[in-house]
């Protein structure tokens, strides 16, 4: 459906996107993930025809952004970050205006606007100026704007930023509903969001792809790695290291805090072995007092942090 090929974008001397290539299948919900300034927005803007790449190209179906940007814009629905809309227009007038630009047939216009208003839950604000709406409603109007032409591809730039938890869940539900039949690309720096909505995640850092896999696979590779936090009383790190270091599955011990009263250690584990039973038995054999013992399963959060850490 969409092929991104060697995409590069320089802002003067600053390289925002560096030789990025990936492909998106029809019906996929793809999450572009990365810290601020990673180049997510730039990629989406190029795809939406707002910016021109310095090098490389994007092909949507049989169209390329260099030659057929108008045709691509007709296939796309795009919601920019924080949904910039005309503040002095009424919601209905705005949607009507978008429908006119999208050349939607006169007779289908009203039913279409009604359907979108239902889908995005903006029926109650149709006759209010956009500038008076709360951020969540603005975002919904933006979503309705993006879906006006029933696009095959929906591009959303940080669709849930600045919303409250309830609104986030609602917007997510809407995106999932759309994603059942459409191709959706969304960017976010919130991992739980990508985890919850996307089929596939592309992690970008400093304009380069650092990971590209299905969400389930990414989680799978993570579940092999886990961490155990341990707090003990009357123990010292050297003897703990001696006792636990040999257990199968324990990779490394790192002291977090060592005081006269207690010792906190983080144990990183590896390979599908669960060392918890062995660790407990070892501790039981001493006169240490076990204050805390819990396993932290790795989330996307951790891999994201690891991949995008400042080197």
């Amino acid at each position: 459906m969409i092929h991104v090929d060697g995409l590069t974008k320089y802002y003067h001397d600053l390289c925002a996107v560096d030789q990025i290539s990936f492909a998106i299948q029809k019906g996929e919900i793809l999450g572009l993930l990365g810290p601020n300034g990673a180049g997510k927005t730039t990629i989406l803007r190029i795809l939406a025809g707002f910016l021109q790449p310095t090098a490389g190209t994007i092909r949507v179906k049989d169209y390329s952004i260099d030659a057929h940007f108008l045709e691509i814009k007709k296939l796309l629905g795009y919601l920019p970050e924080s949904a910039p809309l005309y503040h002095d227009m009424l919601v209905y007038d705005y949607l009507d205006y978008v429908a006119n630009i999208r050349e939607i047939d006169k007779r289908q216009k009203l039913p279409r606007i009604r359907r979108l208003a239902d889908l995005c839950g903006i029926n109650s604000v149709m006759h209010q100026p956009i500038g008076e709406l709360s951020k969540g409603y603005k975002q919904r109007v933006g979503l309705a704007h993006a879906m006006m032409n029933d696009p095959e591809i929906l591009v959303l730039d940080e669709p849930t930023s600045g919303l409250d938890p309830n609104q986030i869940v609602e917007i997510r539900e809407i995106i999932k509903k759309i994603g059942q039949e459409k191709t959706v690309i969304l960017s976010t720096h919130i991992l739980s969001e990508a985890e919850a909505t996307c089929d596939r995640i592309v992690i970008i850092n400093r304009g380069k792809i650092v990971a590209d896999d299905r969400t389930a696979n990414l989680k799978q590779t993570l579940s092999d790695k886990s961490r155990i936090d341990l707090t003990l009383q009357n123990a010292d790190f050297a003897s703990l290291q001696q006792k636990l270091g040999t257990i199968n599955g324990v990779d490394r011990l790192t002291p977090i805090e060592e005081t006269d009263h207690h010792l906190r250690v983080s144990i990183s584990c590896q390979g599908g072995v669960d060392p918890r039973a062995a660790i407990y038995r070892q501790i039981k054999s001493t006169d240490w007092i076990l204050l805390e013992f819990h396993q932290e399963t790795q989330t996307l959060e951790n891999i994201f942090r690891e991949l995008t850490k400042e080197s």
Binding site: R45, F50, K73, L76, S82, P84, L85, Y86, I101, R102
Partner: peptide, 14 residues
């Protein structure tokens, strides 16, 4: 300034 330029230009207009 408001950013609506981006919204406008990503509609099918030249």
């Amino acid at each position: 300034n408001v950013g609506t330029y981006e919204t406008l230009l990503t509609l099918p207009v030249t």
